[in-house]
């Protein structure tokens, strides 16, 4: 709701200024992308077998090094529902948090329409609530990549839609029979959100 109000306010304000011209991306521009993601796990692994992945929420903050390049940080949270606890141990609930850095090449189709080719790396924690009520976690190193198409409504505000492939290299200690099963997790996602752009 707050995001919507901010968006519409920014949009209305910016539209007034926008009658002139879109300013192209440039060094030291900052953009903020809050997003919602739909995930699906792929492959033969614990995430695919034992979890039903819910909507993820995230935010990225990026800094333009050049009109075609930016770097940034990303925070992502994925909510899950456990469907087969016997494949995991007695876990009641799991939330997946990722924090990482990314870089992107930006291709400009038009002054409004852009394609971002993004790659990133980060640290992921699978935070579990056990049935004892105590928490524990599994950690992983994540890499991700994918395209994102953005549309600038005005100089300060836009929307985007993208897809992403992500691989989590898990640090879970298991017997060799379970190496493949717990060794890594693969996710495909569709992500959509709004984009706030500074000067």
């Amino acid at each position: 709701m707050i995001v919507l109000i901010i968006c519409s306010t920014v949009s209305v304000k910016a539209q007034e200024q926008d009658r002139t011209k879109f300013s192209p991306h440039h060094f030291n521009r900052i953009q903020l992308d809050p997003e919602l993601s739909l995930f699906t796990a792929i492959g033969d692994n614990f995430l695919k077998d034992a979890y039903d992945l819910k909507i993820g929420t995230g935010i990225t903050a990026s800094f333009y090094l050049h009109k075609n390049w930016y770097i940034g940080t990303r925070f992502l949270n994925i909510n899950t529902q456990i469907t087969r606890p016997e494949n995991l141990g007695d876990i009641k609930k799991t939330n997946i948090f990722t924090f990482g850095v990314h870089g992107a090449y930006v291709y400009e189709f038009t002054e409004r329409l852009y394609l971002d080719l993004i790659a990133g790396i980060g640290s992921t924690g699978y935070y579990h609530d056990s049935k004892f009520g105590t928490n524990f976690r599994d950690s992983a190193t994540s890499i991700w990549g994918g395209p994102k198409i953005s549309y600038r409504i005005n100089n300060f505000f836009g929307i985007f839609l993208g897809s992403e492939f992500r691989r989590d290299f898990m640090n879970i200690e298991v017997s060799e029979q379970l190496d493949d099963y717990f060794g890594n997790a693969n996710l495909l996602s569709i992500r959509a959100g709004v984009r706030f752009i500074t000067h």
Partner: peptide, 12 residues
């Protein structure tokens, strides 16, 4: 918090 579950570990 009566029991601590070991992080990053599973037993088959």
């Amino acid at each position: 918090t009566p029991v601590s579950i070991e992080n990053n570990k599973r037993i088959l």
